[in-house]
């Protein structure tokens, strides 16, 4: 059951993200990129297999049964990915504002479509 919900969440986030990414307004693009990054982060997390109630950190180094623990590596990767995509989104936001200021429009092409 949790796998289904998880997969649906990733799918919906990705679909919305891609749709927004292809929209003509820069703000829509940045929201689309954010949604995509959520989807990707969840996906990375899911690649360590979904398990409930098992810790990623070894609590008792003497007796180690890996089957009792969840894979800690994807969680570390997610952390890196979150930080990087967060920083990149912030940077994109600055460029977006610069573009808005220079061209006077929030269209991604820097000019409005011919009506």
């Amino acid at each position: 059951m949790i796998e289904l919900i998880f997969a649906l969440a990733v799918g919906i986030l990705t679909a919305s993200g891609v749709w927004l990414l292809l929209r003509p307004r820069t703000f829509q693009v940045i929201i689309g990129l954010s949604l995509l990054s959520y989807a990707v982060n969840l996906f990375i997390f899911g690649m360590g297999r979904l398990r409930i109630g098992s810790p990623p950190v070894l609590q008792n180094p003497e007796v180690v049964d890996p089957a009792l623990y969840t894979d800690p590596l994807p969680q570390a990767l997610v952390l890196t990915a979150i930080v990087i995509s967060f920083a990149m989104t912030a940077l994109f936001l600055v460029v977006l504002l610069a573009s808005r200021g220079l061209t006077g429009t929030d269209h991604v092409d820097g000019r409005e479509d011919a009506q």
């Binding site: 820069t26 693009v29 990129l33 994109f92 460029v95 610069a98 573009s99």
Partner: peptide, 16 residues
């Protein structure tokens, strides 16, 4: 800035 906007969007998608 205009070229940079497209460039950043493309490369962010590529990173994903």
């Amino acid at each position: 800035v205009r070229a940079g906007l497209a460039y950043i969007a493309i490369n962010l998608t590529g990173s994903f």
